[in-house]
Amino acid sequence: MKGTHLGEFEELVLLATGILTDEAYAVKIAEEIHSHTNRTVSLSPVHSALYRLEKKGFVKSELGGATNVRGGRRKRIYTMTSDGREMLDRIRFIRNNLWNLLPEIS
């Protein structure tokens, strides 16, 4: 595992990968993020984030089937690893703790 730090965008990508259990590849992940956050997501940052996540060991990938829509090119399908899941849990745990400490706005 290379570094445990996760950027905000990386976290989104990782979450989206987790949600899309069997069809998680860049285009679908970008769509998923777009539909939840309504921000414009272009492909290259998603790719970069995925490569980084893979290097950190949070996702693993394999080349999947080619479709006509893709002009015969195969897609790289990502699945979340147990490390990735653990990382997300940890982030959530830390966030929850911090939220509990935040004073109420009266």
Binding site: A30, L43, T67, V69, G71, R74, K75
Partner: peptide, 11 residues
């Protein structure tokens, strides 16, 4: 190259 091209075309 292959996967990126594929994604671009699909998009």
């Amino acid at each position: 190259l292959e996967e990126i091209e594929g994604d671009l075309i699909e998009n």
